[in-house]
């Protein structure tokens, strides 16, 4: 899923403080799992903004609302009137939701309350870790199910580099060396001999480098 983290409160305040009305708008799917952008977090953030407005003596009408997903039209039906009547929206969705609102409501200012941080999983309660960079050409089949693009800080396809120490990455003792994990996993699968196969040079045109990506279902 998509993981995000709320921006520092002062940065959020700085973006929205000049409006007379703000709809603080939650997105209750991906970013609610990490307790950063769901409808509950929208309610809390709205309260904090109201307190700040009061402290600064500003008359801003701050309301909170939310839907299940800010990236698909059908979910917007029940808030259509609210958003049409809003002067600004502070979206707690990932960058996708923010852009969806910007495209859907051309004259409505929308601001991001979150930094979209990564595509990740929940390996343990309250802990989120990056696992994919959507490079568009998955190599997990040859790396034992460990992604070198998202988990190696040099995205090396023929690792590990010379900085791998005791299973950790050269940049931090808190980061596992992805290639140590690949080697361990190949060994567990009885496929350590595959380590010596050289992974060919990657086609990055399927990645961000090739420009914005899209695909269309022909039957729709």
């Amino acid at each position: 899923m998509i993981v995000g983290e709320q921006k520092p409160f002062d940065e959020i305040w700085g973006m929205v403080k000049d409006h007379k009305q703000i709809t603080v708008f939650g997105c209750n799917t991906c970013v609610s799992v990490c307790h950063q952008g769901g409808n509950k977090e929208a309610e809390i953030l709205a309260s904090l903004l109201r307190m700040r407005a009061t402290q600064e003596g500003l008359d801003i009408r701050i309301e909170n609302n939310g839907i299940e997903r800010q990236c698909e039209h059908p979910f917007f039906e029940k808030v259509e009137d609210t958003l049409q009547a809003s002067e600004s929206v502070l979206s707690l969705a990932c960058g996708i939701g923010v852009q969806f609102i910007a495209a859907k409501y051309p004259s409505l200012p929308v601001y991001p309350a979150l930094n979209t941080t990564f595509l990740g999983d929940v390996p343990s309660d309250g802990f989120f870790a990056e696992k994919c960079q959507a490079c568009g050409d998955c190599v997990l089949g040859i790396t034992g199910g460990i992604c070198p693009v998202s988990r190696c800080c040099k995205r090396i396809f023929n690792g590990p580099c010379g900085g791998s120490t005791n299973g950790k990455c050269e940049i931090s003792k808190d980061i596992d060396c992805a290639w140590q994990l690949v080697v361990d996993r190949l060994e567990a699968l009885g496929k350590l001999d595959d380590y010596e196969k050289i992974t060919p040079i990657k086609d990055w045109s399927k990645d961000r480098a090739g420009g914005p990506r899209s695909f269309k279902l022909e039957d729709f």
Partner: peptide
């Protein structure tokens, strides 16, 4: 560097 067990195979890979 670690893991030591692939350090010779890694050299073989660079030679290849």
């Amino acid at each position: 560097a670690d893991p030591f067990k692939i350090r010779v195979p890694r050299l073989a890979k660079k030679i290849a």
